[in-house]
Design a protein around this nucleic acid. Sequence first.
DNA 1: TGCATTATCCTCCCAATGGGAATATCGCTA
DNA 2: TAGCGATATTCCCATTGGGAGGATAATGCA
Lengths: 210, 210
Amino acid sequence: MAKRKDLTTTSLAMLGLLALRPWTTYELAQQMERSLRNFWPRARSKLYEEPKHLVAHGLAVARREQVGRRPRTVYAITPAGREALREWLRRPGAPPALEYEAILKVFLADQGTKDDLLAQIRHIRAWAEAEQLRGQAFLREYATTGGPFPGRLGIIALMVSFLTRIDDGIHEWAAWAEEEVSRWPDVHAAPDKQLFQRLLEKSERHVAAD
Amino acid sequence: MAKRKDLTTTSLAMLGLLALRPWTTYELAQQMERSLRNFWPRARSKLYEEPKHLVAHGLAVARREQVGRRPRTVYAITPAGREALREWLRRPGAPPALEYEAILKVFLADQGTKDDLLAQIRHIRAWAEAEQLRGQAFLREYATTGGPFPGRLGIIALMVSFLTRIDDGIHEWAAWAEEEVSRWPDVHAAPDKQLFQRLLEKSERHVAAD
DNA sequence: TGCATTATCCTCCCAATGGGAATATCGCTA
DNA sequence: TAGCGATATTCCCATTGGGAGGATAATGCA
């Protein structure tokens, strides 16, 4: 089983976790849910197959254990696995792909009512606020405990900063959009004449400023 | 054919395009690539099946035409289709799902070298800059031509604003991260003691400020 | 006029994925 | 001691991604 098939990004993601310490498949699946979900979301059911591919490629080894009568499998990375991971890290990663149904509904909002649009924007905003709170809880935990991998604190800081920037961006947009749309007479409102020109100039300033 | 199966978000997205005007499947597929790719990316090959489901559900009608000897199919929305669309727009959309391999590599960067990490960040930054230029080209076009659907200008403005905010966020993060990492002795650098505390306070100010 | 791209207009296929259901044991608490 | 949530997986199927294939029409340019 788990013979064919090349390694996918998901395989390498799990290999990356194994580089930190050995895990059971269950723990691995949990980690994927907890931290990687935000930038590499994968269905839980698939996660149990990946380590088998890693073993088939000689990048990890499996050790079967027993907890009472229940079996479990602990995976650990091999030297070949570390090398494969390093090689993969050297290559540039794929650009982002965003899937956002709520924003799709904003895009098509001229087929509904102004109230629907406002509700959708408020919904987006509420989601962003909830995410911000989640992020703060995470930061509080790290500020007090230091987290389980002290050598990774710098990188964790990069990641937290990235994710909060996205959430903040969505939140700011939603706050602005709510304000903007609430001034429209209806969803077909023409924005004022020079809006696109102004957005363009803003973007040019923004890009020039770096 | 195309009997079973409930309507997916992709079906509704195409129905939304049909609400603007009739299109051939080819044009529909193009529109999905051009504008929806940014927030609802779908494989090209699937896009030819969706309108058939819409027809099967009575939400669109197909008209077969000939261009010389080559047949084509033009789809148009039905009143039932408009109603289904309005109903769908009333319901809150799913939260965002982001898939970003390059950021995943940042997350695992402590298994590689500092140079790999810096290269990855620069790569991300270059991508963001290219996107900003694409956004500006789009804005320039709209600022001069007004675009094909004048009644949608307000909504287009919301969308452009959203997408540039995301790109700007990624770009700002990459610029900051490059600067930050370049000061580290290596990828395991511990950030300075109070960094998480400071990030937390920044986030709290940010959220409080709205 | 002829020729070579490029655009239009699809269909088919397979491996991979999402998402849920199913199963069973462990360990704690009421 | 019964029940419940956490641990620890497997299986399945409809849907998707991604690429290959193939035909005609319109165009640009030599």
